[in-house]
Design a protein around this nucleic acid. Structure first.
Lengths: 218, 218
DNA sequence: CTATATTGTTAGGATTCCTAACAACGTGGC
DNA sequence: GCCACGTTGTTAGGAATCCTAACAATATAG
């Protein structure tokens, strides 16, 4: 996911000391929680990668290649997604190729680009890595479906906001997609609609990373 | 935040292709959203740090030092929090000292430990860095207080679960604290209670990173 | 008081990630 | 056509992260 570098904001203090603070610093606590979870994800990823002799970024590349079509499996695309230079991506890709986890292939329509493809070994490793998310999911089982759907919407809306504000440059979620028709079927259980696949979507069908995504004209 | 390295789980497939999937993969989408936000945070942090000539980990150290008391401002504590070796922390701390952002001081009670203290310059930088969270917070303003509190509870509960399951080794949230008395004042608006500070706590008072935290006996 | 554990430091090395320069290829104007 | 320009991917060189291993100094337990 690409993120636009931005200018620094002036510093408002953030106090953790007095409880019973009246003003709505629930916001701060949400951000703090997300920050902690971010840290957890980072460290888990590092551990998972290390166990397989990979760097974190290499592991992320494998999972990305597993989930996306040929058009998104290119060096410059990975650079955009992960906000790295092409040089860095090329390094990591070279390392993955040396380890026998991916192959570089030619792209017929444009001889400059090389498409990346997982080898069977690489696909196996990528699936193992993708499964780490199950660890988190197990802790969500006991929640009610309504609560989870609300949280999901909240998080996806947040990502959408960040994208609209220019902080994120790549997101590929339904809510920002050109083909997304919110509330196209009012009253029904699947009230939204994807105009590309021509299928109705329920709130829980919304995708966080759709392979077919086309950004809406802003 | 410390995170325990863990064994890899067997891989269940994760499909992004068919919409209208009936089974509860809301869970997967929550995790995917958190993962994306994690990536956003990581990249924003990197950018903020770079603008000030710091590495991401150095920036995180500065913010940690800003928010915590002397007992938590030590090399080994930073290593636990961020799941790094003491050697790595020592490197980064040395770099920060060389840049004039922190000072090492002696700890009277134990001559082995050195306490870290921000210089005025360092404190200023740390406050700037801590303010990056405001960018995210601005996008939360339009949400209802109830929704945000629900999301906050959800996220903090999740962190609590991860901690109880041994994935996270450090968390310092009220809900896992020895002095936390949930629902000590049933019916009132501030229904919980902190037995250390002896103050009532409302749902929105719960802390994500309390300086006074003492882990409950498990 | 001696064995053991903890704290922080150094040295050396693998890896990440950058900038800069480069070659190869598409795309536009003329 | 063809020449300028942008894009794609690669290489080389360097700063920084983060590790293991070994070390000295101090605290703690038996």
């Amino acid at each position: 996911m690409g993120v636009a570098r931005r200018r620094s904001a002036a510093g408002t203090r953030w106090s953790v000391f007095e409880p019973s603070s009246q003003h709505g610093d629930v916001d701060k606590k949400i951000v703090a929680s997300l920050e902690r979870l971010s840290q957890v994800f980072r460290i888990l990823l590092r551990g998972e990668a290390q166990e397989r002799g990979l760097s974190p970024i290499q592991a992320q590349f494998l999972v990305h290649l597993l989930h996306h079509g040929a058009a998104l499996r290119r060096v410059s695309q990975l650079a955009r997604e992960f906000d790295l230079t092409r040089a860095t991506v090329s390094d990591a890709v070279g390392s993955l190729e040396k380890k026998g986890l991916i192959r570089r292939e030619l792209w017929p329509h444009d001889k400059r680009v090389t498409t990346l493809r997982l080898t069977p070994t690489g696909e196996h490793t990528a699936q193992e890595l993708a499964a780490w998310a199950n660890v988190i999911e197990e802790h969500l089982k006991d929640r009610s479906a309504e609560e989870k759907e609300a949280v999901m919407r909240f998080l996806m809306d947040l990502i959408g906001c960040l994208q609209k504000s220019g902080l994120i440059t790549v997101a590929r979620m339904c809510v920002t997609c050109r083909f997304f028709r919110p509330d196209a079927h009012p009253g029904e259980s699947s009230s939204h609609h994807c105009a590309l696949l021509d299928v109705p979507l329920s709130g829980s069908d919304l995708r966080a990373d759709c392979p077919e995504h086309k950004l809406a004209a802003s």
